[in-house]
Amino acid sequence: MNGGLTGMKKRKQSMKGKFKRKDWQFATLTSLLIATLVTFLCWAILKEPPGEDLTAEALAPLFVQSGVTSPVTAILLNFRGYDTLLEVMVLFLAGLGIWSQATVDPTNPLVFSSPATHPTKPNFHGPGPELILATLVRILIPLMVLVAGYLTWAGGFQAGGAFQGGALLGGAGILLILAEPQRISTIPPALIRFGIVLGPAIFLLVGVSCFGYGGNFLQYPQPGAGSWLLLIEFGAAISIGITLTTLFVGGRPDPKRLKGTDQP
């Protein structure tokens, strides 16, 4: 959806006010196709109700075995754990892709200036926006990390889980970079790599160690399944948060600019 929107935006920009006849043709054809698709989907959904053995009551005993009480987490991590593993791997690959494409100067990761990096801007008397931003960040970020941890843990019995906690962590990371961009230069790149790899690695390790309990790959041992799931969720949350922040920064730290930077 994002890609389509961006593409359409660019196209609109380049053709200001020049609607030719073939554009109208294209537009009508597309609308017709989409209308057909939507009608078909509505008809399919309204015609066949879900089967008897897929209702919540029928599946309830299975959920008890899964180790968590939230049905979403049970399906996501236990019954369809392999799909979630692939999703985590896809995110990992996205992070790898960004890292391999570009380098970013760690002392100035965002090319535009923010009040924190140019404190010498005049026009304000007294404490300016940079003070507000710094204070807000100092209060918010620990809170965000705490809430992210709670969300990840709470995924076992209510809405939440690894992806939600990871998204919140990613938001925290982005906020940090927007407020104090030069802080990136103080983080050793090895730690960032470790964070990106942690989620997929824990997922794979747990999957393989299930063999030692007599099950197939990712077939958790019955009594303790909940704790395995929690382990996976925490690793995945950390990994997702760090990967999202890396995606925002847009590249790996330039090794040439990394040596000997001062603390802000």
């Binding site: 994002n2 090319v111 809405a159 889980g161 927007l178």
Partner: peptide, 29 residues
């Protein structure tokens, strides 16, 4: 679907919005 709502709010609105703005700024520069 509260899980998806959480994810949409954080990623769809938050992270993607920040990404778009950052890309826009780099593009204009």
């Amino acid at each position: 679907a509260p899980d998806v709502a959480l994810a949409e709010a954080a990623i769809g609105a938050g992270v993607t919005g920040a990404l778009f703005l950052s890309a826009l700024n780099k593009l204009e520069r």
